[in-house]
Amino acid sequence: MHIVIVEDHDALREMTATVLREKGYFVTDLAYAEDVDSILDGARIDIIVIDLNLPGEDGLSLTKRLRKAHPLVGIIMMTGRDTPKDMTVGYESGADIYLIKPLAPETLLSAIGSLQRRLHGRTQNQPITLSQSENQLNGPKGSVTLQEAETKLLTACMRAPNYELEYGQAANLLGMNDEEYNKKTLEVRVVRLRKKIKNAAGDKLDIRAVRLKGYKLTNSIEIF
């Protein structure tokens, strides 16, 4: 499970990251909301722990943006804002769990465990969807951001007979001109896309090579 911590207090961020890593979680710790964007392209994120009083973009703004773009991600707010109004605003912004600082590490670990179980139940029957406008692939494992060319390729596969495209068609959709095109280079591009698909859909979707022909999607995608 990949957990991202967004906290500008260096000592608290480092301590929290250490506690989570010792429990076996893969952790990315960031000091600014703007840094989150640098890890979203193709990366699987399961849970984000967000402080509200961040420099630059604040935690509420970040939460709203993430909830819209990544509806399946788990969001925990960890903040010193402790009034009922603050909590209401936090939940309305998209938080799954609202925790008030200071808190014991065991409290955060319990919240993460609870949210992990809820997310697992939430995604069991989650359809695989593709947003063409946002270049976003959503599935039972999470959400990933695609390149525009990758979105075009998946869309074309869905609309093709038997979900299959020829090598040349795939290369064209991935923006490769005649000079750039060769099967080895094309396969490298498809392998990158395959990793993103796995991060979003797990084993429910793949784009496989069809010998001497091209590529084929193994399942359907809802496109909007």
Rank of each mutant, 00 (worst) to 15 (best):
L146Y: 04
K198S: 13
E150R: 01
E92Y: 00
Q147T: 03
F224Q: 08
T79W: 12
T123E: 09
P127T: 02
L205W: 07
E106G: 11
D178I: 12
I75A: 09
H9I: 05
I75N: 05
D82M: 01
K204Y: 08
D46S: 13
D51V: 07
P84Y: 04
E187P: 00
L153W: 09
M15N: 11
R13D: 02
N138S: 13
V73H: 01
L153G: 06
A111R: 06
I76Y: 07
N182G: 01
L217N: 04
D46W: 08
N172D: 12
A209I: 01
P127E: 02
I75V: 12
H2K: 11
D8K: 10
E179Y: 15
T218C: 02
D82F: 00
I97G: 02
E106D: 14
D206P: 01
T83I: 04
D82Y: 03
D58M: 03
E14Y: 03
A95W: 11
M15E: 12
T218D: 07
G202A: 01
V190A: 00
L165Q: 09
Q124Y: 06
L205N: 07
I100H: 08
N135I: 03
R189S: 09
T129D: 01
P140Q: 15
E92F: 06
E106L: 08
L186G: 01
E106M: 09
Q136M: 13
A111E: 11
L115Y: 10
G24L: 13
K183G: 01
L154E: 00
N53T: 06
L108R: 14
A33K: 15
A156W: 03
R159Q: 15
D206A: 14
L60D: 08
L40A: 10
E7C: 13
E179Q: 15
L109F: 14
P161S: 13
F26I: 06
L52N: 11
D58L: 02
R13S: 05
C157N: 01
V191Y: 07
E106F: 12
V210I: 13
M78V: 15
V73Y: 03
G42L: 13
L153Q: 07
L119C: 06
R81C: 09
L186Q: 05
Y32F: 13
T28V: 06
H120C: 10
I45F: 04
E187M: 06
T123P: 02
K85D: 11
I207F: 12
D203I: 05
